[in-house]
Each structure stands twice: as structure tokens, then as C-alpha cells.
Design a binder for these strands. Structure first.
Length: 215
DNA sequence: GTTGAGCGTT
């Protein structure tokens, strides 16, 4: 017991480096109370920093939860995204050397370009496609005309922008539909049209309930 | 990590 206490106060022999580091101290270097105070200050500072970090994290989490739990906020942000999408086009086959400015110049005849985003990978290299967001919704239709137009000697792919369609390449098993069964002939052509802009066919969904008479 | 991919974020 006494041995330990003695060690705490006297056992630590300050080396030269420590002594030099303590030169600024107004109190004597060998005062153990000063050392202890100093240590406490350091730990207090650490705790304050931790508390600040925690507060920041909590604020972040609360914000996320808030937006996730508040349907109005979530719906609003979703609506904003969809609204922005309706004014945007997806541009594929963009040359790696293309700058957003060049893309903006290429599309400025269609309408007012609000912003151009060229997607990049983690190395900062362009992925070869971009989004062009216009101010006017009508500009999108104008921009689609520039599909297969050349930029840096490459034929651009201009498509209406969509979100969350990673499965364009993948085959999607469809839900069972009795009208699709073998031998059945539709009285009219299937609800598809071949898009002149995109790959393959674009589904058109019939909203039968909308036209259902209410009795 | 030196290319040609198909839908992101404040």
C-alpha cells in the first residue's frame, strides 16, 4: 500500500525529453500535483471531443430517423427527386475526357441547363455517363433529339432519366398472369411500344381501375 | 488503377 503510493508519486523519474517538454510550465516540473492536473486537463479535453463527436453523430441519426419516420418529409424529398428527374436526362457513352462544361454546351440549345453531373468512380475517373438537369420540363424532349449526336467523336445515348433501375440488364421473372398462358391470343397488341431512344421495349401499364365504372 | 460500364446526391 505505502509502497504503491510511494511509487505513484516518486517512482516516475522524468527523463530529459519530458523535462524539456515541460519548460513552458509556470509551476515546477517536479511538482506531481501539476502533472496530475495536466493529465486531468488532457483527459477532460479528450472527453469534450468525444462528447462533441457523439453529439454530431446523434444529430445525424436523429435527422435520418426524422426523415425516415416523418412520412411528409420522406414524401416531400421523394417528390422533389422525382420532380428533378422529370427535368433530367441520362446521357451515356460520354467520353472520359469530356467536361461538364462541354456537356452543358452540347445541351444548352435544348433549354436552360440547371446542372450537369458526370459520374465518376472512386478514383475520380469518369464512368462514361452523366445526368443533365434542365430548368424546364420541355427541355427533356428536346434533349432526346440529341440521342446519337456526337460529342468527342462518340455517339451519345440520351434517355429520360430514371432512378433505381439497376435491373435493366437482368432478366426479371414476371408475376404469373393467367392471360399470358399458352394458347391465349390477345385481341389487341401487347401494351408495349418500342422506344426509339432506349434499349428494347418500355412497358406501358394499363390502369384498368381508373376506367372502372362505379356502381 | 489506364477503361467503354446503363441511372447519383446536397
Amino acid at each position: 500500500m505505502e509502497e504503491e503510493e510511494h511509487e505513484v508519486y516518486g517512482g516516475e523519474i522524468p527523463d530529459v525529453a519530458e523535462m524539456e517538454a515541460d519548460v513552458d510550465m509556470s509551476a515546477p516540473d517536479d511538482d506531481p500535483a501539476v502533472k496530475e492536473l495536466d493529465e486531468m486537463k488532457r483527459r477532460l479535453k479528450e472527453m469534450e471531443e468525444e462528447a462533441a463527436a457523439l453529439r454530431e453523430m446523434q444529430a445525424k441519426v436523429e435527422k435520418e430517423i426524422g426523415s425516415a419516420q416523418d412520412p411528409a418529409t420522406a414524401a416531400a424529398s421523394l417528390a422533389n427527386k422525382e420532380e428533378a428527374d422529370s427535368r433530367s436526362v441520362f446521357v451515356g457513352n460520354v467520353d472520359y475526357a469530356c467536361t461538364p462544361e462541354e456537356v452543358q454546351q452540347h445541351f444548352q440549345s435544348c433549354g436552360t441547363v440547371n446542372r450537369v453531373t458526370i459520374l465518376t468512380d472512386k478514383f475520380g475517373h469518369p464512368k462514361g455517363f452523366a445526368y443533365v438537369e434542365f430548368v424546364e420540363v420541355e427541355a427533356v424532349q428536346e434533349a432526346l433529339v440529341l440521342n446519337e449526336s456526337e460529342l468527342h467523336g462518340r455517339q451519345l445515348k440520351v434517355l429520360p432519366k430514371r432512378t433505381n433501375v439497376p435491373g435493366m440488364k437482368q432478366y426479371r421473372p414476371r408475376r404469373y398472369n393467367p392471360y399470358m398462358s399458352f394458347g391465349f391470343r390477345r385481341p389487341y397488341p401487347p401494351p408495349y411500344f418500342y422506344s426509339p431512344y432506349g434499349y428494347g421495349k418500355v412497358p406501358r401499364f394499363r390502369r384498368s381501375t381508373r376506367y372502372m365504372p362505379y356502381y
